[in-house]
């Protein structure tokens, strides 16, 4: 059983192939009860496939996983009874009203009748749909739909939630509200694995799992990732033209990485090459006008660029 001891989600060597294509390659992941883990990575990296394996929707090709203490292959229906799942595409019934959708999922999850009324009210309040119980779901705007979908997915009070890009296509204010709900649930010791491609959302997570090209390439808290993963000094460098500057810095000694961020470059310097003070002169000598380089704190985006680039180089090698 799932209680107290042990991780809420545990994947060991979890792999999935479709024919010759490996969608997820030997993924190891342990999530503690009450933890919010953000699943980040480019499209097609394997985020959805992993979430679907953990939700017992796809059968792993290799490896194993336990969710809420149940094996995703051998005890699939126990897993399903203990999770809430939101798929990438909106999946409530559009021709049913808010109340009818809630009643349907309560029936499917066998919510005891004595508890249904309280949970229905909770879900409606959570979605901010008071007074709109009889509106057809197809008439709701994106943010309300997403929050209602979340409300439906937790009617049975699952200890584990899998949310596959729940906020894609939702306006920023609704995204913020959605993340408040996620943290409220986490405070109730609900374990949440949520995939997203919004970098700002990654900051809201206790830990981040970065997946790229079917492999888990980094796992840690946002702070840890920012501090640890770069392995050098990150500088912001205003210069123009950016393209020429980028080309010039690619092969410069000591420049581990350079990437365009808005109107400037972020440059990662390794030890033993150019210093921060050398950079403007280096660029001016190559016909690029440059301001002074200024050390900055790495954003998660910097970390992901770094990790994905490194992973790509490793994959090519």
């Amino acid at each position: 059983m799932s209680d107290s001891a042990g991780p809420a989600v545990l994947a060991e060597g979890l792999s999935k192939s479709f024919g010759t294509f490996t969608a997820v390659d030997r993924l190891d992941l342990a999530i503690a009860p009450g933890e919010v883990v953000g699943f980040i990575g480019p499209n097609g990296a394997g985020k959805s496939t992993t979430i679907r394996m953990l939700s017992a929707l796809l059968r792993p090709t290799a490896g194993r996983a336990r969710v809420a203490g149940f094996d995703v292959v051998r005890e699939a229906n126990q897993v399903r009874a203990h999770i809430g799942y939101m798929s990438q595409t909106f999946s409530l019934y559009g021709s049913l009203t808010v109340a009818e959708n809630l009643r349907f999922f309560a029936g499917i999850y066998r919510v005891p009748p004595a508890m249904f009324e309280a949970r229905r009210r909770f879900a409606i309040a959570m979605a901010g749909l008071e007074g709109r119980e009889d509106a057809l779901v197809s008439t709701l705007a994106g943010g309300w739909k997403q929050r209602l979908a979340l409300g439906c997915a937790i009617l049975h009070r699952p200890p584990v939630l899998f949310l596959d890009e729940p906020t894609s296509g939702v306006e920023p204010e609704a995204r913020r509200l959605f993340w408040e709900l996620i943290h409220r649930l986490a405070a109730e010791r609900v374990t949440i694995l949520v995939s997203t491609h919004y970098m700002d959302e990654a900051e809201y997570c206790n830990r981040i799992a970065l997946i790229d090209r079917s492999r888990l390439v980094a796992l840690g808290s946002p702070g840890t990732l920012r501090r640890r993963e770069l392995g050098g000094t990150l500088l912001a460098l205003p210069c123009a033209p950016l393209g020429a500057a980028l080309a010039a810095l690619r092969d410069a000694p000591g420049v581990a990485e350079a990437a365009i961020f808005g109107d400037r470059l972020h440059v990662l310097l390794a030890a033993g090459g150019l210093s921060a003070d050398d950079l403007p002169a280096f660029l001016t000598a190559r016909g690029v006008s440059s301001g002074a380089a200024r050390p900055i704190d790495a954003s998660l985006e910097d970390v992901f660029v770094h990790l994905v680039a490194g992973h790509a180089a490793a994959a090519r090698a």
Partner: peptide, 26 residues
Amino acid sequence: IWLPATRPRRGRDAVSPGRLLAIAFK
């Protein structure tokens, strides 16, 4: 208030008339 998780009874996928009717009604 976050209500405690209801634990569905264990056992091999017994047919639930409630679930069946929920689908039929929907």
